[in-house]
Amino acid sequence: MTQMSTIYPPATRVEPISRHTLAVVVDNEPGVLARIAGLFSGRGYNIESLTVTETEHESHISRVTIVTTGTDSIIEQIKAHLEKLVPVHRVVDLTLTGDAVERELCLVKVVGKGEQRVEAMRLAAAFGARTMDASLTSFVYELTGTTEEIERFIKLMTVVGLAEVSRTGVAAMARGPEGM
């Protein structure tokens, strides 16, 4: 090999990792969720959140929203493998289609008395959280927002007596007039 200089790239190429939100439209048949979850676990992909409910009852169609992280090539693989699953109608990468609307709902229980309790109420009001339940020593708040807002809310609530958290995971939709 004379004229050709080596062009071996360094052994470990570091590709940047990004977060993608995927909307997956599937037939709501038994086991479809296991197929999707199994694909991620079997191939070592990440799931940050996964939400699913039947969205069209007549035709038994469900919409799964998956938030995942990986390099660009891993994200491409994930989409290709999802599309290969027989009950999958469509996979849309909402992160690529532009700035999608992404919302998550959380329920937060705080327990405390005195100043702590007052502070919890103030914070909840500042975030626009709704009070779903109240007792003399506790509140259950509901907050809907982006994942980041919810993370911030929960972090603050830890200081004022956070006892329990339940989150739905992300529901997402592209902006503008076009449907999926």
Partner: peptide
């Protein structure tokens, strides 16, 4: 024929 074979190991 399999889209997931594309760019899996080799670009």
């Amino acid at each position: 024929i399999d889209p997931s074979s594309i760019n899996k190991n080799v670009k």
